[in-house]
């Protein structure tokens, strides 16, 4: 076991854990969207899990930092908060939040992060960018809402882990990036069997399962 100090509190964790995982397991919330504990090489793409470590001159992402004995970490310094708020506002500038009609409002990770950072769910003072994406895409067992997707990549990762190959992938680039199944196969011929690992892990409600189809598939495997 390794001991470290986070926000003046001593916590213990197994060697080899990432700093982010150690904090989350000890009840210290650090905003994050793309982190998956089993992933060997963290994406570090959401840029939300910044912390300051004593002895380092600039903030680092907690998901890429391995725990070391005697680390002294601060998760809520003004520098960290500024970075996190900016990253969060950038995300929200491409994610129109309609909390009233959103199917995941109760468990939305974005709402949790906004509360933690004490900011609103709008992109202010940044502008809102209207991405040229489809309203919804039918992916057989679930529906994909590109405008809600923050492209954290968790679904792409769990899909590969669960099925051994990439059924879900990213396509296009920049603001046009979407995820999905591609190819000319009819939806029923797709090798997706509706394990829903992707929809379960989605932090923003971009992948919503179709309950009626899943029930049917379970009855006639």
């Amino acid at each position: 076991m390794i001991k470290l100090i986070v926000d003046d509190k001593e916590i213990k964790t197994e060697a080899g854990n990432s700093l982010l995982q150690a904090c989350l397991e000890n009840g210290i919330f650090i905003p994050n969207l793309c982190f998956i504990k089993t992933r060997q090489h963290p994406h570090a793409s959401c840029r939300l899990c910044f912390v300051e470590i004593d002895g380092l001159d600039r903030p680092v992402t907690a998901c890429t930092e391995k725990v070391r004995e005697g680390l002294v970490v601060k998760t809520d310094t003004p520098t960290v908060r500024r970075l996190q708020r900016t990253a969060f506002k950038l995300l929200m500038s491409g994610h129109p939040c309609e909390a009233k009609v959103c199917p995941v409002k109760g468990s939305c990770q974005l709402i949790r992060i906004a509360k933690h950072l004490k900011v609103g769910l709008n992109p202010k003072p940044l502008e809102y960018i209207d991405r040229e994406v489809e309203e919804e895409v039918d992916l057989t067992f679930f529906t994909y809402y590109p405008y809600r997707c923050v492209l954290c990549g968790k679904c792409v990762y769990v899909c590969r882990e669960k099925n051994g190959h990439n059924l879900l992938t990213f396509a296009q680039r920049g603001f046009d990036t979407v995820i999905g199944f591609f190819g000319s196969a009819e939806p029923v011929d797709l090798p997706c069997h509706g394990c829903l690992a992707c929809a379960t892990i989605c932090p923003t409600g971009a992948l919503i399962p179709k309950p009626e189809l899943i029930k049917e598939a379970k009855m006639n495997p």
């Binding site: 190959h165 990439n166 879900l168 992938t169 396509a171 199944f181 190819g183 000319s184």
Partner: peptide, 25 residues
């Protein structure tokens, strides 16, 4: 053509999805 990309996927034992993802990038 999308048929072409699917043949490439079969040859490399990866999903057409992956080929499409790389090509559109």
């Amino acid at each position: 053509a999308s048929t072409a990309m699917e043949m490439v996927a079969t040859h490399l034992s990866i999903t057409p999805s992956e080929v499409f993802g790389v090509a559109t990038f």
